[in-house]
Design a protein around this nucleic acid. Structure first.
Lengths: 163, 163, 163, 163
DNA sequence: TTTT
DNA sequence: TTTT
C-alpha cells in the first residue's frame, strides 16, 4: 500500500541503457551504500543495491551518471521473479526509481574517465515523467539490441514496465 | 550513506522468531505491499518483501503481529550473500526494520485464529532499542533452536547482527 | 533537491475542500502524529501537522477521510509565506501530499457520524494524477466559494499550485 | 505514529550551536531545498526548512557544516508552540534530525571562507547517539551562553529535548 | 511458497 | 484550535 525507498550512495559501474522489445528505455545500475556501522571485524561494509529506471529518466541516468558518482535515488522496492534456464524460480529485488539526483557534477572527483557521452547534466533529473515509448535520441537497430543478442537470459521485458 | 525504507502492507504469514547461536532474538516475516497500479492483464499485484527485526523489536513483533495484519515497517535495505550447499553464491535482499507499527489492533478483522500468544499489544512498537542478548521471556533449549535443528541451511548468524 | 515526508496519524477534524479562484480543488486537514516518546511529565504528545492535497487527490480525500481516521500521507514539506493584514510576513509550513492512504475503512471505529457524503472508498487513493481543473462532481457557486467569502484572509491561491 | 522526513539541500548560513540551561547542545540551521518545478513566472524556487539537531550530532554539525554545503538530513517534523511577548501563541515547525550526511567535503566548492573551526569531517555523522549532557570539546562560560545573553527571546529549552 |  |  505504501512502498518508499531513499538511498544515497555511489555507482559501482557506469549505468547500462537497454530497451525492451517494444522500445522502452531501461537503465540499470548498482549503488553502493555504506552501512552506518562497521562489521565485527571492524571493516566498513556496504550494501550493493540494484536500481532500475525507465523511459526518460533511464536516458537521463545513462547520459549523466558514471561509476563512482554520489547519487540519491528515490523509488520503490520491487521483487520480481522468473524461471531460469534450469527451470528454477529466481527472485530479484530491485529499487524502481522515479527520482534520481546527481549529487556530484561531472567536474569533481569520481572515477571520471572515458565519458564518451555528454559532459554536463542539465540540472538534476526528472521524475519518471513524460514521453512514453522510445526517445529518438537513441536510435536502435536489431544488432545492438541488448535484449536480443547479449547472450544472457533476457530478464527485463515489457511485462516489467511499472506504469 | 543513507538508506531508508518505509513500507505499509500485510503479513503473508505469522512471523517466525528464532535465536542466533549466541542467543539474540531475530524475527522474520514477509509483507505484501500492493503495487500502485495493475498489471497489463489488469490484475492487482503485490511485492512480497522480507523483513527482519532484531532483539527487543523481534520479540514484540513475534508477540503481536499475525498473518494478514496491516503493518508499517521502517528500516534499511540490506543485501547479504552466502554460499549455498552447491557452492554457489546466493544474494538475499531484506529490509532490516528498526521501527514497526501495528496498524490493526488484535480485535478487528484479520486472519485471527489460533493466537496462542498474547492478545494485546502494549502500544505500538519500540525502535530497536534496549536489551542486548536474550530476553528471559523466551526460554530456549537446544532442541527447539531453529538455528541448529530445522534442517534448512542456517542462513542467519551472529555475523548478521546489524548493531 | 530532495524533499520527502511520510506520516501516519489521525485526522483532527473532517477535511476541508475548497477551490482556488480558477477552480482547482484543494483540501486541507491536520493529522495528529503521536511522538515516539513521552514528555518529561510522562504525557503522550503529538505533532499536529497540516496537510494539503490538490486536484483529484483533494476530492478523494474530501470524500473519504473523516475526523479520527488513521491515515498515511506521503509528500513534501513546503514553507510558504504571505503578508498578513498587519503587514507582517507570516510563514506557513505544510506537507503537500501526493499520496494518501486510508488505513481504516469506513466501517470500523473512528469518530464516524454525520457522514453526509459517500460511505465507501474505491480503493485507497491516487497519486496526484489525472484531471486538471475542476471535477464536475463538485458544483460551486460564487456564494459558497471559500476563497471569496469566508472572511479570513485568502491564503491559498492559484500561485500556490504545486504542479 | 510514524513521522519521517528526508531532505537534501544547502545550508543558508553557518549553523548555530547553543546550549540549553542544563547544558545540552543544540544546533539550528536552515536548508534550502529546490522545488522540483518552477513557479508560474518560471523562476526556480526553494523551500527554506529549519533543522534542529541535539547532543553529539549538534556538535558534529556545528563543527563541519558551513553555509552553502550540500547536506542530507533525516528526521521527523515537529510542531512546537510558545507564547510570544504579545501573549500570542506562535507555532514553529522544524525538522528534528537524527541523521545528517555531509555530501560535500570541506575542500570542494561551497561558500567556503573563514572556517575558524576544524577543517576535516571524520566520516559523515552519527545518529543522535552517544553522550548525554555536554561534550567537553565545548567549554562554556556564563558570558557566552546563547540562552542567557543573546537578547532574543529564548525559545529552546530543556523542555524541547526530544529524547 | 504469499496478504486484504 | 486538535486525533485514538
Amino acid at each position: 500500500m505504501l512502498n518508499r525507498v531513499i538511498l544515497i550512495g555511489r555507482l559501482t559501474k557506469d549505468p547500462e541503457l537497454r530497451y525492451t522489445p517494444s522500445g522502452v528505455a531501461v537503465t540499470q545500475f548498482t549503488i553502493a551504500v555504506d552501512r552506518p556501522f562497521t562489521s565485527q571485524g571492524g571493516e566498513r561494509e556496504a550494501d550493493f543495491i540494484p536500481v532500475v529506471t525507465w523511459r526518460q529518466l533511464a536516458e537521463t541516468c545513462a547520459n549523466y551518471l558514471r561509476k563512482g558518482r554520489l547519487t540519491a535515488v528515490e523509488g520503490r522496492i520491487q521483487v520480481r521473479n522468473y524461471e531460469n534456464n534450469e527451470g528454477k524460480r529466481v527472485y530479484v529485488t530491485e529499487v524502481i526509481a522515479d527520482n534520481v539526483r546527481f549529487l556530484e557534477s561531472n567536474r569533481e572527483g569520481g572515477a571520471g574517465g572515458g565519458g564518451q557521452r555528454e559532459e554536463t547534466p542539465f540540472g538534476g533529473s526528472g521524475s519518471g515523467g513524460g514521453n512514453t515509448g522510445r526517445s529518438n535520441n537513441f536510435s536502435r537497430g536489431n544488432q545492438n539490441d541488448p535484449f536480443s543478442d547479449d547472450g544472457k537470459p533476457i530478464d527485463i521485458s515489457d511485462d516489467d514496465l511499472p506504469f
